[in-house]
Simulated scan of single mutants.
Amino acid sequence: MRFNRKGTTKIYFLPTIAATTLIPTTAEITAGTDWTDFIHSIDGWSLENQPIETPDMGSTFVPKIDGDDSAADSSLGFYEDSVTDDVETDLAKGTVGFVVLFSKGKTAGSKGMDVFPTKVASNSKTYSTDNEAAKINVQFVITDRPLQNGTVPS
């Protein structure tokens, strides 16, 4: 059944995940921060492949094989808070942790949990003369192969 990601997908930042499988425990998820309601934009959070051309003398067609995987440039855009500085401090440049995307919601047993090992590369306020809310952009680097389509723990 089709669904709208807005209102369904949840986005968390977890400071730690002990398992090498990148499947967080319920306690690790609870210890994380649910940033869903503070995010106005999301970019990246996918794997990209760098195909390798494999031409040969037997054909004028150039076939390809799959090559190295790499993570897309990834960021989250937040609304800035005029009272607290949680985004600025909790996601300061250099912060290491895990961005967890519950693409189909945080329903135990469902597939669709993507876990990205990350480091915050930059945390920058955006300035504008437009009639809009104040914003902060947090850029992440993906530091290892993510878990994709994991099962949400119960």
Score class of each variant (00 low, 15 high):
Val100Ala: 15
Asp37Pro: 00
Ile42Thr: 09
Asp37Gly: 04
Thr89Tyr: 07
Asp144Pro: 01
His40Thr: 11
Ile11Arg: 01
Gly44Gln: 06
Val152Phe: 02
Ala31Glu: 10
Thr20Gln: 11
Thr151Ile: 06
Asp81Thr: 08
Leu14Met: 05
Gly109Lys: 02
Pro153Gln: 12
Phe13Cys: 08
Trp45Ala: 01
Thr36Phe: 02
Pro55Ala: 09
Lys111Thr: 11
Lys93Glu: 15
Lys93His: 10
Gly58Val: 10
Gly112Asn: 05
Lys135Phe: 06
Glu88Ala: 15
Ser124Ala: 14
Ala134Lys: 07
Gly44Asn: 05
Thr26Arg: 04
Thr126His: 03
Thr60Tyr: 09
Leu14Gly: 02
Ala92Leu: 09
Ile23Ala: 10
Ile65Cys: 02
Ser103Lys: 14
Arg145Phe: 14
Asp144Ala: 15
Glu132Met: 12
Ser41Phe: 12
Met1Leu: 08
Gly32Thr: 10
Thr143Ile: 08
Asp86Pro: 01
Gly58Asn: 15
Thr9Met: 14
Val87Met: 05
Gly109Val: 10
Gly58His: 12
Val62Arg: 00
Arg145His: 13
Ile136Ala: 08
Asn123Leu: 08
Ser154Met: 05
Ser75Asn: 09
Arg2Met: 10
Asp144Val: 09
Ile65His: 02
Ile17Glu: 10
Thr8Gly: 03
Thr26Phe: 03
Glu80Cys: 08
Val138Asp: 03
Gln50Glu: 15
Met113Asn: 05
Gly32Asn: 06
Leu22Ser: 06
Pro55Phe: 14
Ser41Thr: 13
Gly109His: 02
Asn149Arg: 06
Ser128Met: 02
Gly97Asp: 04
Asp56Gln: 14
Gly112Lys: 02
Leu76Glu: 07
Glu80Tyr: 12
Ser110Met: 08
Ser70Met: 11
Asn131Lys: 14
Ser110Ala: 14
Gly7Leu: 00
Glu28Lys: 01
Val141Arg: 03
Val87Trp: 01
Tyr127Arg: 10
Ile23Asp: 08
Asp66Tyr: 10
Val83Phe: 14
Leu47Ala: 06
Lys64Ala: 15
Ala31Tyr: 07
Asp43Val: 10
Ala121Lys: 06
Ile65Asn: 02
Asp90Ser: 14
Ile17Met: 09
Gly112Tyr: 00
Trp45Lys: 00
